[in-house]
Design a protein around this nucleic acid. Sequence first.
RNA 1: CGGGGUGUGGCCCAGAUGGUUUAAGGCGCCUGCUUUGGGAGCAGGAGAUCCCGAGUUCAAAUCUCGGCAUCCCGACCA
Length: 415
Amino acid sequence: MRQSQLFTHSLKELPKDEASFNAQTLMRAGFIEKISAGVYAYLPLGLRVFQKIEAIIRQEMANLGAQEVELPSLTPEEPWQQTGRLTAFDILFKTAGSDKKQYILAPTHEEIITPLVKKFVQSYRDLPLGVYQIQTKFRNELRVKSGLLRGREFTMKDLYSFHLNQEDLNAYYLVVQKAYFQIFKRCGLLEKTYLTFASGGAFSQYSHEFQTVTEAGEDTIFICEDCNLAINKEIIKEQSVCPNCGRKDLLERRAIEIANIFKLGVKFSKAFDFTVTDAEGKRQPVIMGCYGLGLDRIMGAIVEVNHDNHGLIWPVEVAPFKAHLLDITTDTKGHHQAQSLYETLLKLGLEVLFDDRRQTPAGSKFADADLIGCPYRLVVSDRTIEQESFEIKRRRDTEGRLVNFDQVNAYFHSN
RNA sequence: CGGGGUGUGGCCCAGAUGGUUUAAGGCGCCUGCUUUGGGAGCAGGAGAUCCCGAGUUCAAAUCUCGGCAUCCCGACCA
């Protein structure tokens, strides 16, 4: 994409209305814009990152054999009444239709998915089943905070699984954990993300959170380095003890919950009378699990974990563009050379942001490239052209190297 | 929901003991010239319900009251 065509641009100064690093920097770099407290718009650069994260999640969900659907955000009141959550939830956005009928802007979708799946599934032969969506959720938080880390409108990947018995759910639960770690690995968060024992809420003794260690996080977790596990402070009674090995000297860290998975058991299948016929011909209540994952939080966490004083540093798989090509040449010949390199890179299938803006000093292009944080920076300048080459530098490196124009194909095929 | 901070061109902000303010400066934007390896220079230009409402006053960006927005701390977080 040509940067001269991009309708957004970065700001020299930090936005006053944000204090968290992720929101400040993403707004400054032109990735997101705040519409109201806890509600953000994704701009072209930010949307590209968001869609990369979505794509990773879809691939890993496909590997699980989960089927994608899209449920509505605007939901009728009745199912919420049926499970008691109409009153139990204090974060519901409610809205009335013209017929005075009350609707709920869904904060999660157990109430919708359970009756839906019930309609099609009557036999144990249809199980296990995993159904997921990537969709907007609404939670009327009393206090939003930390930019993308806690908003009132956010996107969640929510997977629901249906099983004949507890053993099957337990096995599936472990497989989902693996898939989640694969997602976090691809998002560059693996090293700092811990499977964390947390409150099971109304469903079970524990749930499991995936907590990414960062000072920007709002949770406190205690990490067992032996087991690579953590326990959320909220469920610690007296002393922090590893639930796996019993170790007591755990590391206390701030962390952001980027995912939360639950064994729901029969809570929702009972509420909606969802049973299947087993092999003996008897009706059995379906055993359910649910697996949430916050996309905005993942993006925010990536930013909190990967940056330096100059700006963002995107992991390769989620970067808005793989390369940022800067034309800092000063004459027509130079511009043609940069243009030609851009076209060559496109033909090679590389995602490139081409800074073809004129009358912009070179320094501002470097600053912008650092701020936007594409993994590779390519520079064509009068100097490099003298050597029939362009410079390539990784975002994290301080020194680049020259690559001859003739060797573009070879270079990108081998890297 | 309790406590605290902030609200002035698109952005960052000065002005706050009421009156020389015709609301200053920087960034960005427009025009022209110049410049090009770390957010460049010169000249000219456009752009403002000073968050909203009420009040005090001869006079309010400035004082008072009410509201709204936003950030932060706490509580909450299935």
